[in-house]
Each structure stands twice: as C-alpha cells, then as structure tokens.
Amino acid sequence: MSARDEILGRVRAALKDSPQVPQVPRGYRATSGLDEKALIELLVDRLVDYKAQVAVVDAAEVPTRIAALLVGAQSYVVPAGLDSGWLAGVEYEPADGRRHLDSAATPLTVAELDGIDAVVTGSAVAVAETGTIILDGSPSQGRRAISLVPDHHICVVKATDIAGILPEALRRIDGTRPLTMISGPSATSDIELERVEGVHGPRKLDVIIAR
C-alpha cells in the first residue's frame, strides 16, 4: 500500500467516532471603521514602532521623495512595471548603469542583485493596525527576489490601498499570487527575546505613503 493511502487510512480510522464539524464563530472584527486620515496615522505609528522610516506625501510629491531617498545609492533596481512617473525625479543617465529594470522575462541574477544598493517598489495593500505592507508580485512590485536582496527597500503605499485590519486587507488580494507580508525591516528576537532590527532582509525600509 502506498504511504499516501496508508496515512489517509490511518486518519480515517482515527476519526471513527465521526467528530462533529463545528460552526466557526466569526465574531471578531471584520472592519476597523477608520477613515483615511486615521488609517494613515495608525499605519505611520506602527511602521515607526518597527523602526521603518515613513513619509506621508501628496501623490505629486512621490517622485521628489524617491529621488531624495536614492541620493546615496550607487545603484537601484525597479520592477519593469513600476509607475514610471515615480522615477521622474531621479536623474536618469542610461549609460551610468545606476538604474536596473527587472522582470520575470528579463530577470537579474542573484549575484547582480547582491551588487545593487536599493530597490523601489509599489505595494498591493497595507494593514494599518499591524503596520504591514503586502507585496503580491504584480508588475509594480516585481519578483520577490528584488525586494529581498538589496539592503534598502523603498516602498510606495497608496493611501487608498491602506486597510484598517488584516481581514480587510486579505479580502483585497488574491491568495494564490506569490505574496510577501512585510512589517518593518528584518528583525530577530532570538537573543534573550529582545527585538533587534536588521538581519538578512533589507535592513532599511523606507515607506512613502501617497495621499
């Protein structure tokens, strides 16, 4: 008998008492009821708590903000589908090799990514209460590797994409896409259960909230 059939057989035999399938009580909150101003405030508070850097700007100011954050970066990568307007403030000289475009069709190698200082992406949805940004691999966010290997992640969150609590956020995304939920820069609590920021993922997370 195959292991599969044997295990399924054991499980069926273990349930010979036919336990009842309970109704799941979903009395927990489904929405936060917060307006956009409150959502932004809450998200900022939580991100700052995680030691992420946050700026709340009007949509028109996003390019200037990104340009300012990229000042110290020798090189940066963006997903091919990133809103090109967002990069309008960054001086672009194709020959200097500072900007790298990445897509599933033309992916950078891991070694190439390792040599790049920063990454700029959009985001699918954010959760104000937990300070979480969710990337779902759509064109503005790109492959998972690009927002992982460079040490500085600049992430644009549109105010309209901020959900109050997790159930609201998860309802807005397709769970079968390659998803990364990000809550602050990488961190560990492995030594004496005290949190320290900055391990393997990007050690610097800049969030631009665009109104």
Partner: peptide, 15 residues
C-alpha cells in the same frame, strides 16, 4: 503585532 516577514506561495510561479 505582526512578524517582520510572512511568505505565501502557491505551487510554482514562473520566473
């Protein structure tokens, strides 16, 4: 409130 990273994947995603 939330751990820094959660990864979710559904089988193989090309590229």
């Amino acid at each position: 409130r939330m751990n820094p990273y959660t990864s979710l994947w559904t089988g193989v995603t090309e590229g």
